[in-house]
Amino acid sequence: MGYEINEEKVFNSGHAACPGCSEALALRFILNTLGKDAIAVVPPSCIAIISGPQPLSSMSIPVYQTTLEASAASAAGIKRALISKGNNHTNVVAIAGDGGTYDIGFQALSAAAERNEDIIYICLDNEGYMNTGTQKSSATPSMAFTTSTPAGKLSPKKNVPEIMVAHNIPYMATATTGYPDDLARKVKRAMEIKGGLRFINILTPCLAGWGIPDSAGPKTSRLAVQSGMYPLYEVENGESYTLNYGPNGLSVADYVTTQKRYRHLLAEDIELIQAEVDHSWERLQKKF
């Protein structure tokens, strides 16, 4: 494994995440890579819960809990204030869920990207509003069950990674918790590239919302990559694509049959998703 545990421990034990939570795992890799010279901006989300019940915090850095629609704007404001005070070194990192990124915070994010604000924006994408009881977000994939899509979602997942690439930001990457070394390397890369908005979308399987065992987070995240549902890649300056991990021969069926949110699928439904995945992968491959 290329990932080395940062003993600085910016992320602390005793937090309130569910047992086996992938978001907590992602936070560990992100925060310990960022180090203590950072300020986090967190909107309402599981991340807000995990960051700690007041007056305690699981993160040994300043955390600003903002409103659900304003993560990118808040982070940009903090960064500009730091710069005006002569601090050019502290990383300001917005860490939001997919609801706060794909839906409610999207306007602020797109605007910050358009202005190319000097912040890192990380989306912990668990494909739904899991914190409020598993409602559908625009990150929820086709046919997945949520409490607001009881028969399965009718539209495909919004492709925010490519939308962010289209803003021509200096860095966009997809990552997931089953590949800690890759994830940590991408956070490091985002820190190296300064002076613009860097966006990382991290797939974090939700144990309760997806219907998988407590121990299956990393494994499910790898199945997402290996089945082609979620390729790991990075893009610099909106055009330079690098593939890190793509599908390796596993099928969509290998991925969806381990999750209860797909329990209602028929064989032909799985074939439809497979066709959608094949198509997306074909399109993405042309860019490398």
């Binding site: 034990s13 005793g14 937090h15 309130a16 047992p19 019940p53 007056p55 305690l56 915090s57």
Partner: peptide, 16 residues
């Protein structure tokens, strides 16, 4: 600053 300490004083081991 509202935060007075770290969550590491919380004993989440009682959950299991």
């Amino acid at each position: 600053i509202w935060t007075t300490g770290s969550t590491d004083i919380l004993n989440t081991g009682t959950w299991r």
